[in-house]
């Protein structure tokens, strides 16, 4: 594991290394190094299983974080590879040729965040949202509460309570 990390740090400029638990390490690599790194891990290091890939919207830093979670079934180790791309229409390289099911993750990310994956099969087809015509809903500038209230006929009379204050009032009304 340590040797593997050393090789990754030396060869692929990995930084920000974070050991979550035994056999599970997350680190960040710059965007141009991601594809060579994943290729290397799959071909030579035995990480032949892509568990998932997902995205996080860091709207304050104006960037998306994309996380690839790879697994080596022989040594039972997981690697979380993070990379950051710009929020404004900057795409990411597709890895559907390494794992076929990556195409589905990429299709979902394209729909939910608007991250482009050029060349990925069926990436523009709707995945969960059929006929969606607004901005991608998982981007944080999308106001889901406002959209829901405008679209889905909210039932009047719904109250929301903060659990802490509500229970305090209920249980200790005199305090």
């Amino acid at each position: 594991m340590e040797q593997l990390l050393d090789r990754i740090i030396a060869g692929f400029e990995a930084a920000d290394i974070e050991k979550r638990k035994d056999g599970q390490v997350f680190f960040t690599v710059p965007k141009p190094k991601v594809l060579p790194l994943i290729n290397h891990l799959k071909m030579f290091e035995g990480f032949r299983n892509l568990i998932l890939m997902t995205a996080v919207d860091w709207i304050e830093d104006n960037q998306f974080q994309i996380t690839y979670l790879l697994n080596n079934p022989d040594t039972k180790t997981d690697l979380g590879i993070r990379t950051f791309i710009g929020r404004d229409g900057e795409g990411m390289d597709s890895i559907h040729e390494l794992w076929g099911h990556a195409a589905t993750f990429q299709r979902e990310m394209k729909e939910m965040f608007g991250i482009g994956f050029p060349g990925s099969p069926r990436v523009d087809e709707p995945f969960l949202l059929e006929g969606w015509d607004d901005i991608p809903p998982m981007r944080r500038e999308f106001d889901t509460k406002k959209y829901s209230e405008e679209t889905y006929f909210p039932r009047p009379g719904r109250e929301t309570h903060d659990p802490a204050t509500y229970m305090k009032q209920k249980l200790y009304p005199n305090d």
């Binding site: 969960l128 949202l129 809903p137 999308f142 889901t144 509460k145 959209y147 829901s148 209230e149 889905y152 006929f153 909210p154 039932r155 719904r158």
Partner: peptide, 10 residues
């Protein structure tokens, strides 16, 4: 799911 963008309310 009352404020979800994709599930109906009523």
């Amino acid at each position: 799911y009352w404020d979800s963008y994709n599930t109906i309310n009523r």
